[in-house]
Amino acid sequence: MNYYQQNQPQTNTVPENHDLVMKGRKLLEITGVKEVESFDNEEFLLDTVMGALAVRGENLQMQNLDVDKGIVSIKGRILDIVYLDEQHAEKAKGFFSKLFK
């Protein structure tokens, strides 16, 4: 690393890669997360580098959140993992924004 690279401000960029690793339907680790749109104990709505992702289950809790690296870990009973197209993602976001006003 040269002097120029060392003195450049660090930017928070989410890695381009996106992986899902599930351990026994009890722990889900997700990389490539740009933003956590909303979450509760039954559903997480995430914006990833591959599109909107909904994780549904029971007793869901955020185990780990690293915004700089784009990593989210969800603990609980995972029932459903689905990518939402733009139309479904907007409906889900609209529903949650009304719910939390």
Rank of each mutant, 00 (worst) to 15 (best):
R25G: 08
V82D: 09
L60F: 04
L28Q: 03
K23L: 14
E43G: 01
Q10Y: 04
V36R: 11
V14L: 02
N12D: 09
M50T: 13
G70P: 05
N7D: 06
D47E: 15
D66S: 12
I71P: 04
I74V: 11
A52T: 08
E43M: 13
H18T: 12
K98W: 01
I74F: 05
Y83Q: 13
G57Y: 01
D68Y: 05
G94K: 02
A89N: 10
I74R: 09
L79M: 06
D68N: 11
V55P: 01
Q61E: 15
K69G: 02
I78G: 08
V14T: 09
V82M: 14
V36F: 08
G94W: 00
K98R: 07
V33W: 04
K23F: 09
D85C: 04
K101Q: 09
L65E: 05
Q10N: 07
A54D: 06
A89I: 06
G32F: 01
T31I: 02
R56P: 00
Y83A: 05
P15L: 12
D80Y: 10
F96E: 00
F39N: 13
L45V: 15
M50R: 15
R25N: 15
F95T: 00
L46K: 07
N41Q: 10
P15N: 10
L99G: 03
K101T: 05
S38V: 01
